[in-house]
Design a protein around this nucleic acid. Structure first.
Lengths: 203, 203
DNA sequence: AGCCTATGTTACCGACCGGTACGTCGTTCG
DNA sequence: CGAACGACGTACCGGTCGGTAACATAGGCT
């Protein structure tokens, strides 16, 4: 039996869907990221969440839409984290990037690192009409824009190109991190980024 | 291994009745690469190949093994292509890399580019015990070694690190190519590689 | 009280999944 | 010739997939 929660603060103003939907979101996020989206069935999700299938389909129209929701949440969170690091180190763009990269590198060295969930979703759903793929593309485009802004702050001669070069590095860490694990190519990302910055900012 | 049983008297060339196994291989490669492995069922493969399911299971013990075979063939081919470019431009390592990169870039600009099938397979099969994943890891390790050799030829101070930096770039092109399509970050890979080489080779 | 909303319970659907038992055909060769 | 053999197809299996219908229950609200 699932334990019943006694939630005294029951306001209808925000987030009326109290438990089930959120538990499903968390479970889906966990399972989708670790095992891949197509590899996880809805039965596994509801079991992991301690709810039942109808509860899932009351909150989400389909598995595809649940997937899109998963990507949306994770993507917005990632972009917000990026912004937070930017805000925490004002007027030091190189330091901002370093913090972000070191953080990424640390995660990429984790035993069960699985790369970027957004990129992975794009791999699993190549069809550009798929709801999950649309969200993934949106997130990636916005990240690309942020990197161009960062490259501008870094003083690049061609910021859009430095931003793209850095994006290549990021995607490289995502992929190689999950393929090679600790000790993989991701170990050089800091110095590689420095090399790119120096090259694009020198005159 | 498939049994060698071609009859010399019967076949003028291995042409007219293309063997079922080979048709299956080709179809699997086509479908797996374009749509993803988990997205393609064995029924779709045999239909596309114009054969029937038992023919598949006579040549391959399981879908997982067919997948491993697909990755093995594609990977060996890719590594051989790399070697061929190296051999075609002796004593010009930078030129070798440029040829390889320009070729990759051209493919990455294709309308339905889907990145590296090996990387994609690793994304779809995170379990390191899976036969497909094992093949993928092997191919990637060998590619990494080749890049270190190239970095050595380029005269890098720390060839293993330049090789890894270049590998990050490659994986970046694979991922961003299929996400952003033409006009994506892959457009800067040539100059980014040059920047990395210069940095790692300068003293 | 009586409703409303969110959830659980059970049972079910058709489609598709990977995989197989077994029959058939055509060639080869004693 | 005709038996043996290797290549292939027909038909089918049990399980799982995403998704749904119908009904029960429990608690908060007016």
């Amino acid at each position: 039996m699932t334990k019943r929660n006694s939630n005294p603060a029951r306001s209808q103003t925000c987030e009326a869907p109290k438990r089930a939907a959120e538990r499903i979101r968390e479970s889906a996020r966990d399972l989708f990221y670790r095992q891949g989206i197509r590899a996880v069935g809805v039965d596994e999700i509801v079991t992991h969440a301690g709810v039942t299938k109808p509860s899932l389909y009351r909150s989400f129209p389909s598995k595809d839409e649940l997937t899109a929701d998963y990507l949306r949440h994770m993507g917005e969170e990632g972009l917000a984290r990026f912004d937070a690091i930017i805000a925490a180190n004002p007027s030091d763009p190189r330091g901002q990037l370093r913090v972000w990269l070191r953080d990424l590198q640390k995660k990429a060295n984790g035993k069960d690192y699985r790369g970027c969930g957004t990129t992975n979703a794009a791999v699993e759903y190549p069809d550009r009409g798929h709801p999950a793929r649309k969200v993934a593309s949106d997130i990636k485009n916005r990240f690309r824009t942020k990197l161009v802004a960062l490259a501008t702050a870094l003083g690049a001669k061609t910021p859009d190109r430095l931003g793209d070069a850095l994006l290549l590095l990021f995607e490289g860490v995502y992929a190689s991190g999950q393929i090679f694990g600790a000790g993989g190519p991701a170990r050089v990302v800091l110095e590689a980024a420095d090399a790119l910055i120096d090259s694009y900012c020198s005159q």
